[in-house]
């Protein structure tokens, strides 16, 4: 074969060598592959975080412009508000009642036993209203509305319907992402306020029925409200709005960034994990910083 290749060449001409084969991915040493995998994983996580930050700013920027609030956008906002708030009401009531039953009545009982009943207000404000309520409301929003959004948007993206919208001159960010994010933010605050009120009232009813508290309902509520500081009045609404906002946005983005390889089996867990992380991180950051 080499003789045939050099047959027409003059003597002394070096035989052309085939170019060296490019190294294949599998040929790389194990440490390089490990490094590449780590980089890929990190890049993926950071890119979602950057996207979340950029889209957060985008939603706020669009929300203050009157032209963004076209009738289609207002309609989407109303539908999401109804779905997330009215739809989530029953779940929030049941969860709040159980929390009140399990936590408030127990707190009142054990603080009474320990002779620290006067701390009930500040304990309930710190643990229940400031920490637990935003977390549980975030989880309710994520489960009832966030996962629905992930599925709906994932299907829209995979079915080419997002592209259809773009071809009709409808910006999916304006029509879908902005109203859903804002509606879920408002819904988070509404559900959170109801959740805290129901949990406190339910806890009081159970405690009164068991005889662990002798106060009237108004006195009990007055103790809770008196225990709230200015910081609490800032942190609690901030947490509820922020968690609703970020759960909505993270769900929208997870759905809209689905690739053609994605199906529900891959999309749903991703949306859930991102949602949980967003809830936890937001809650912790706001507790630490405000």
């Amino acid at each position: 074969m080499s003789g045939l290749a050099t047959a027409g060449q003059p003597h002394g001409t070096p035989t052309p060598q085939p170019p060296p084969a490019a190294p294949r991915r599998g040929d790389a040493p194990a440490w390089q592959r490990w490094l590449a995998a780590t980089g890929h994983f990190t890049k993926q996580r950071i890119s979602f975080l950057c996207m979340l930050a950029a889209a957060s700013w985008g939603v706020l920027r669009e929300a203050v412009r009157p032209i963004s609030w076209r009738r289609t956008v207002r309609h989407e906002f109303r539908i999401t508000m109804r779905q997330a708030t009215i739809g989530g009401l029953a779940t929030a009531f049941v969860t709040a009642s159980l929390t009140g039953f399990a936590m408030v009545s127990q707190a009142l009982y054990w603080l009474g036993v320990a002779g620290q009943a006067e701390l009930a207000g500040s304990l309930l404000v710190t643990v229940l209203v400031r920490e637990l309520t935003p977390l549980l409301v975030g989880l309710i929003l994520l489960g009832r509305s966030g996962m629905l959004t992930v599925t709906e948007f994932g299907m829209l993206k995979a079915g080419g319907q997002v592209r259809t919208m773009i071809s009709q001159g409808i910006d999916p960010f304006l029509l879908l992402v902005m109203p859903r994010t804002l509606a879920m933010s408002l819904s988070g605050f509404t559900l959170g306020m109801l959740f805290a009120a129901v949990a406190l009232v339910m806890g009081y009813i159970v405690s009164a029925a068991l005889g662990t508290t002798q106060d009237s309902l108004w006195l009990f509520l007055d103790k809770v409200v008196s225990a709230m500081t200015v910081r609490d009045y800032m942190v609690i609404p901030a947490k509820l709005f922020a968690i609703g906002y970020l759960v909505g946005l993270s769900s929208c983005l997870t759905g809209l960034t689905a690739s053609t390889d994605d199906d529900l089996a891959s999309l749903m867990p991703r949306g859930f994990v991102r949602g949980i992380l967003v809830i936890m991180v937001t809650s912790i950051l706001l507790t630490l910083t405000v």
Binding site: L156, G159, Q161, G169, I170
Partner: peptide, 21 residues
């Protein structure tokens, strides 16, 4: 402007034409 101008185009697409929700 791009999105507004696209609103002046009528398309009869082949697939992915209907928003399922």
């Amino acid at each position: 402007q791009t999105y507004a101008l696209r609103g002046r185009i009528g398309r009869l697409p082949q697939r992915g034409a209907w928003i399922g929700m």
